[in-house]
């Protein structure tokens, strides 16, 4: 795996879970997993892509898509601008083509740093295009989820992204192309209740928050007592909702094996087509 040098110049940092002090160099070499408690810290989309796919094979697409403020929702434009400045991106999802152990894959990676990875029209469009490219080009789809859910600021337009992305996943299934979802911290609500949950295979990072109703929403609905592991990847595994929990350092190998096996048939078709369609 092509680990990069520490991004920040700080020599130390604190684990957000166990609060122990970590050496930045160790932390980066350990893929931002705490050496003490194993907490998987959140990654930006760029880091995730660099650490998952073959070096310099990621071709980013759909970069022209940018959120507007279709509902003229209060403060939305300010939030968008702040998120754009923070992430240097136009939205929460990064999409494109990449290679994984030399196999072509259609890829989307959500970035929690952009408005909590929420899904509005742009994120929905990018996920849809990723799945459509997978179906059309016979390249397995890999989607890294990281989202608080649908983006409230785009109202019903956001809700309809659930239908749109799910329809695209259905098209992928019909085309015989495998779709693998990776639940990272957090994978919630409208994203979980649409394209994320109907992947052929679902793997999750340890202790990722995974659930339908956010705390503030469920509290509003009167839900109070919950189990200790409620809405974690481990809870989902126990209840049969996901296939495996995969530590970050094993993620690339696991995904490659899945693409090679489940995607074997599709990839033959892709090769017979002489690469791209």
């Amino acid at each position: 795996m092509n680990t990069k040098a520490p991004a920040n110049s700080e020599a130390f940092l604190q684990c957000i879970n166990c609060k122990k002090i970590l050496f930045s160099i160790d932390f980066e070499q350990n893929l931002r997993v705490c050496n003490y408690c194993g907490h998987h810290h959140r990654l930006s989309a760029a880091t995730r892509i660099a650490w998952t796919f073959d070096e310099d094979t990621f071709e980013e697409l759909d970069t022209e898509l940018r959120s507007g403020n279709p509902l003229e929702f209060p403060d939305y434009v300010d939030k968008l601008h702040a998120a754009e400045a923070k992430t240097k991106r136009f939205d929460s999802v990064v999409s494109g083509r990449a290679k994984l152990e030399e196999m072509p894959v259609s890829v989307a990676v959500a970035d929690f740093n952009f408005m909590g990875g929420s899904m509005g029209s742009v994120a929905g469009e990018k996920i849809t295009r990723t799945l459509e490219r997978a179906a059309d080009e016979q390249t397995p789809a890999i989607i890294f989820c990281a989202s608080g859910g649908a983006r409230m600021q785009e109202g019903l337009l956001s809700l309809m992204q659930m239908a749109k992305t799910t329809a695209a996943a259905q098209r992928c299934a019909e085309a015989g192309v495998p779709y693998i979802a990776v639940f990272t911290d957090p994978t919630m609500a409208g994203v979980l209740a649409s394209y994320a949950s109907i992947a052929d295979v679902i793997v999750a990072e340890p202790r990722a928050l995974v659930g339908f109703a956010g705390t503030r929403v469920s509290k509003q609905a009167g839900v109070s007592k919950v189990p200790d592991d409620f809405q974690t990847a481990e809870f989902c595994l126990k209840h049969g909702m996901i296939d495996r929990i995969v530590p970050r350092k094993e993620m690339r190998d696991t995904l490659a094996s899945l693409v090679r096996t489940l995607g074997g048939h599709a990839l033959s078709a892709y090769a017979a087509n002489g690469g791209k369609k």
Partner: peptide, 18 residues
């Protein structure tokens, strides 16, 4: 939004219905 529903996969059920 309750615990029971989460345990039985409310999100998956909705996604699968769509």
């Amino acid at each position: 939004p309750g615990v029971e529903s989460e345990s039985r996969g409310i999100s998956e059920a909705i996604a699968a219905a769509i």
